[in-house]
């Protein structure tokens, strides 16, 4: 797979691009966290980002909904430049269209599961309570937790909490979902239930960008795999190619380290 160095884009290039990174650079002081990132996620695509720790994977995915700022470059989400100077209201509106799932779930502990899911559609999108409740019910069923509607996050296991977190993000009906190491904080036996939900989502055609260490998931579900190290995307390939015959020596070393376990 070759990588082109495109000219900086000022307008959305193609209709089916969901996320477009153009010459993204980011520094923490002197340390360069992201270097010359150029990539795109098409609509309906599932992209998995992997690499050793400290490679900038989480930083990259957090720039998409501007939880991290960028120093230079352009980031388009569904045609909108996320990092352009804009008012708070405009940014909030954009964010409400990007689903984000955190490594530490970040459910709101003072609200029940149902309330967690209903809160943002009601308060941000202005959805009526009855509609929000109905939608929440559907989503809970989709993630398999209908019987936990009245429970509080502290009463749920990690896997259950993460599934609620996914439902909460889905309640906003986003065109794309971002997952930042969704299973890294879970006990091994609970990883499976979360991955099943993600698999089902992908199957239903959701555009997804996942940072994860779960290589089996990447192999089975991803359309493309990006390998990052030291702030750069060193390789972009489909799973078969990446796992079968990685090009970049760093990627080769990474995969062999993984297999050694």
């Amino acid at each position: 797979m070759t990588m082109t160095t495109p000219a900086p884009h000022t307008s959305p290039a193609r209709d089916d691009t969901m996320i477009l990174f153009s010459n993204i650079n980011k520094w923490y002081g002197d340390y360069q966290a992201l270097a010359d990132i150029n990539a795109e996620v098409k609509k309906g695509e599932v992209v998995v980002v992997c690499g050793p720790s400290g490679s900038g994977k989480s930083t990259l995915i957090r720039t998409v909904n501007r939880l991290e700022e960028v120093k230079s470059g352009q980031l388009l989400f569904d045609g909108h430049d996320i990092h352009a100077p804009m008012g708070g209201a405009a940014l909030n509106k954009l964010r409400s269209r990007i689903g984000f799932v955190f490594q530490s779930f970040n459910l709101f502990p003072h609200l029940s599961v149902m309330e967690n899911i209903m809160l943002s559609p009601m308060r941000v999108l202005g959805v009526k309570r009855a509609d929000a409740k109905a939608k929440a019910g559907q989503l809970l069923e989709r993630v398999g937790l209908s019987n936990k509607a009245g429970a509080y996050p502290a009463q749920l296991s990690g896997g259950q909490q993460q599934r609620v977190a996914i439902a909460r993000a889905l309640a906003m009906e986003p065109p794309a979902m971002l997952f930042d190491e969704p299973t890294s904080a879970l006990d091994p036996e609970m990883v499976g239930e979360v991955l099943s939900v993600m698999r089902a989502l992908a199957h239903d055609g959701m555009t997804m960008m996942c940072v994860t260490h779960e290589m089996n998931f990447a192999r089975e579900v991803a359309d493309r795999v990006w390998f990052m190290d030291a702030g750069r995307i060193l390789e972009k390939a489909d799973p078969a190619t990446f796992f079968g015959s990685p090009q970049h020596p760093r990627a080769q070393r990474f995969l062999s380290d993984l297999r050694a376990h």
Binding site: N65, L67, G88, A89, N92, K93, L94, R95, S96, R97, I98, F100, F102, N106, L107, F108, S120, R123, V124, L125, A165, R168, A169, M172
Partner: peptide, 9 residues
């Protein structure tokens, strides 16, 4: 972060 990511001001 979660609240902001969901679009709350």
């Amino acid at each position: 972060e979660a609240a902001r990511a969901l679009g709350h001001s």
